[in-house]
Each structure stands twice: as C-alpha cells, then as structure tokens.
Design a protein around this nucleic acid. Sequence first.
DNA 1: ACGCGGCTAAACAGTT
DNA 2: GAACTGTTTAGCCGCG
Length: 673
Amino acid sequence: MMVESASETIRTTPSNQNGVSSQSDGGGGREGGSNGDTNGEISPVDLLHLQQQQALQAARQFLLQQASGLNSSGSNEVKQSPVQVRAHTHTHAYTHARPKCCFVRICIILSPWLLQLCLHQLATSTTQCDIGQLGSKQLAFQQQLIQMQQLQQQHILNLQRQGLVPLQPTAAMQSLQQAMCPSDLQQLWKEVSGVQSSEEALKQAEGLDLSTNSSNSTSAFPKAASAHIPLHSLVNGHSHTPKRDSHEEHAGSHPLYGHGECKWPGCEALCEDMGQFIKHLNNEHALDDRSTAQCRVQMQVVQQLEIQLAKESERLQAMMTHLHMRPSEPKPFNQPLNLASSGSLLKRDSDLYPEGLPHPPTSAATPITPLRQGPSVISSSSLHTHSHSHTHGVGPIRRRNSDKYCTPIASELAQNCEFYKNADVRPPFTYASLIRHAILESPDRQLTLNEIYNWFTRKFAYFRRNTATWKNAVRHNLSLHKCFVRVENVKGAVWTVDEVEYQKRRPPKMTGRGNLVSVTSFHICAQSVILTPLSLSLSLCVCLCRSPTLVKNMISGLGFGSLNASYQAALAESSLSLLNSPSLVTPSAASLNMLHVGHDDVSSTVEQVNSNGSCSPTLSPHQYSHQVHVKEEPTEVEEDSRSVSLLAGITHNLPLPSDERDLEEDLPTEELE
DNA sequence: ACGCGGCTAAACAGTT
DNA sequence: GAACTGTTTAGCCGCG
C-alpha cells in the first residue's frame, strides 16, 4: 500500500518524474545525488523546497480535513475522521488505509528522515491518541509540521554548508550526474533487491528510531540509514514487466543470462544452463513489486547514462572545438581511451574503489587519471566504505597505485579533505606518502611520532579506528624507509623526511613496473587500436587536457623512447603544436621530464626545487644539527640521485612559467585546508 | 613464475 | 610494570 501511495505521489509530483531522484537526500550522501531531471533548471535546493511546500500543503489539507470533520460532526462524532476512527478503536495504523495513505503521501515527498518522523507521528497518534485529546493532538501535529519545516530548512543549510547541495543549478545537476555512477547504480540495485514487500517496508519504517536519524542527517557522509526509503518510492505498479517473451527466452541466449549467472541487476545467481536460468527467472524475477521496482530503477539507469553520454559528448565537442580540432572523427578518439578503461587500468580502478567509492561516469578521458576519480567526485556516503574487498581484516588497499600513479597527495587531500575527515574511507595513499606529507606539512617539517599519529587521526576518519594496526604500520614505515630520518631533539626524537631518499625509493624503470599510470595508459591506448596520427593526437590531447601531470609524464615517456618512432612521428605530425603550447607544456617542463622519470609523485620532485626557492632537494641544514640515525635501504640506484640533482639544477636554471607552476599540486606549502 | 612494493602482524629491545 | 617508541622479521597480496 505504501508502494502505491509512493508511486502515486511520484506521478503527481512534477519534480519527481524520476523515481530514483524522487527523494531529497536525507543525509547528503550519494543517494541524494541522482536526480535524473538534469535537463531542467531545478536545483536540488529548489527540489527540496518544492517537496517541502507540497508536503506542507498536503499536511495542511489533511489537517483541514480533520478539522472540518471535527467541526461538522461534533466532538463526539468520530466516524468521519480516519484519525478519530483510529483513535477511537486504538487499532494499529495500517489497518486504516486512508490516514496512512495520507500520511504516506505527505511523507514520501519529504526527505527520508522526515518520512520516518511522519511515520513516528503516525504510530504515536495511533497508539496514544484519544478522542478527548484529538484537538491538542492536531495542534501538536501542526507544531511538528512546523518543526519539520524548520528541520528541513536546517537540513538544506547543512547540505549547502557541506557543499553537497550546490547553489548553482547547472553545477548541481552536473554533480548529481556524476554521483550516479555505475558502482552507485550497482549498489542501488542491491538495495532494491533487498526491498521487502510494501507492507513489510512500512512496518520496518514505522519501527525506525528517530534519534539515530537526526544524527545521520547532519553528518557529512552518513551511513545511508534512509537509503531504503527512497527506493521504495521508486516502485511503480505501472512500470514494465521485466519478463521476456517465450521466444526470446528460448533463443539459446538471453540478455539477462551470461557466464553462467543471472544478469538481473543485483542478482548474480548461478545457473548452470539456460533452462535453469529460465526457471530461476520465472521464480525469482516474476512480476511483483520487487521486480517492478528493479525494472524501474533500470530505466533510470539507462536514462541517466544517456543523459551522461549526451553531456560528455557535448563536452567533447566543446573541447575539440576549443582545441581547433575536427570533430568529425570522434570514434578513433574515443576508442583507445575506452579500451584503456576496460583494460588493466579499469581493473586497477575497481580495485581502488571496488564497490563503494564512486566511479564517475566514464568520459572520454577519465580513464587516464583513474585515481583522481574516487573521492574527488565525492558523492558516496560511507555506506560502502566497509565493502572494500580487502584481503585482511581491516583491509589495506593496495594503495601504491595512487602513490605511484601520479596522484599528488596534496591536491587529493586538499580536494577531499572533508571527505577523508568524515568518511571512514581508507585514503588511497601509502603510509610512507602520508607520513611524508604529514611531516612536510608541519611548520618545522618535523614531527614526533605522536604528532604523526595525531595528524593521521585528525585528517582521516579511517585512522580513528584500528589504531594498533596502523600505528604499527606507521612505526614500521618510519623505521623501514631510509627517507624518514629520526632526529634526536631537545624535546625528544622527531622524524623528518629526506627528500632525496624519498625520491630514490622507486628507481626508474621505464619499461617495467613502477611507471606512471599515465604513460601506461597511453601505451594501452596506443597499442590497443590501430592508431592514426590523428587519433593518436586526439587521444593525447584529451589526456593532456585532463591531466596536466600527464603532460610531463607523457613527454618523459617519449623522451625515453617508450613510444616507438611511429608514435613519435605521429605526435610530431599532429600534436606538436599542442605539445608546444605554453598552456600545456613548456620546453623547460619537457626537458625536466626527460630527466625525471619513475618517481611516483612527479610534482614532489618539482616541489623540492620550488618550495623554498632553493634548488637543494634536501632538508634544511638545521634539521640535521642533531643526532641522526642513518638507515640503510637495500635498493639503491646511483643514477637516481644524479638525475634528481641534475634535475634540480636544470629546473633552477629554467624557471617554470606560471602555467607550469600551476600544475604543481604537491607543493608542501599547499595547505590542506 | 618471479621480483618488487606495500601491508599486517608480531616479537623484541630500549626508553619514558 | 605499563605504555610508548623503535627495529626487525615474516608472510601475504597485488601488480608488472
């Protein structure tokens, strides 16, 4: 019954034409960022206001209805009012359809936690209401509605303050689109798959604890306690039936069957053969509320993807127009990049953000910088943060990915500072890079162990738990890596960073492991398809546009001949002008990268040069004025230090232009907040 | 299959 | 003695 009411509300609510997006976000998390109405100009805030107004209007009507019933029939005449009937008989709420429908109608267009508030009100009035108290009850309800209104406004303010509800409609829609990424959708499916029958859902909702929800609604990335409720509202009894006709079912292949398992969203049931699958399909995915809801969500998925595709295509056109390129050949341009995304890089991406963290919509160029995609498009709540398929209990992400693949930790942290602070998400950085960052961020570039601990817990919600594990790891890293230097101080021991040693940690191997992801990506791009000079240059252009760091890495790759002559010729033919564009890359940067390869964090090397105007990559001398315990690391490559030193000298002589400096994201002076 | 980097766990010693 | 700090080793895993 709740389902019907919900769908009815959706149909009659102009702003809720998309089931997925029919709910205002109860907690600012991912479930709120999926408005499919991206063509309109309604911002989420407007949407919330609209819903709020509608809710209040419906509530007022409901109250008026009750009031008129009271007035017309007298205080003892209770049969005309559903509430009074309920009050009179003291029966349970959902034995009376009409008041519940009314309440549900009101509540569905409220945010999920307000829905729970309504249900709570319903339950309270059901069990406690007495005829004599009805007048005061109405007053109380009216007051609660006002309170709800205030709460919701507060909620909107919270969302705005957290940046989760942008004020600009277009930006808002864009972020909402990004929020609806495949992993989110997959999770959505799982949620919908778990949808109980409507009556069960109502029962469950009725039993929800309000106290917990209020806190959820104010946290930045709440556990999606209310995530189920919006999905209930998706259910529409009039949507398509997912059942295939018999001809299609027995054709030997089925769109919903592949690799021995059911491809019904969120199902993944194993079926040995088609017959078993058909049986499974008929049994498990018959025409019922759940299947209907799932089908409806799938419609939203498709719609969302289409909208996303349209937007990305438009963006591509604009980019190409801007770059004076011919938009007539988008296919070879898209193809290599998509291939890259479906290859090892995508796997790596999924490793980093297995299910929970959002994978932003795959645009033409995003695969090149997969690691920038995680929290950078924060839309996910911590709903999935425990779903990382870690090997161990607390689960280390194999994070050297980001560390290695040119994700500047400073910019990542700067962009997603609040995210890591609030969400219980493990940061995609190695301990070493985090420790280094913590130390370099400190005023004196030195921290005690305890201060490092504090930095970890201050910056990352994740490190507020499992303290024994990660603290041990921190100590282990401090001891193990030569780049961390223990300095005996007056106050005790402090830890500093030896940048030279840090850069030496991974010796350059241009053809082996340890390469920057961007170069690897480009190799995949280049080798996966038959490249024409134009397609190659197009790929390059997008890569370069999307990832300034990639410019450096790419050139470094070229400089070391990791691309063969034909590729370089293609580059020279088609992309030379672009590569020589001051806005993208400069000769100094090019020469810089001819020498600088193999470091996990490109900008960190530049950082040494520019951080304090000195070309010395080492720490300031005063930091070594005390006793220093020198550690030895087994792997040392002499050429590394030479290249770094040489690099420092070159970059010192060739100051970077302002544009280039803008690309340096890992400067230690860059504050996180 | 192998090597490497990264992580966790644990043992141990020294210091506070 | 407990807690903290620092070192070292072992084993596992993912990746190239």
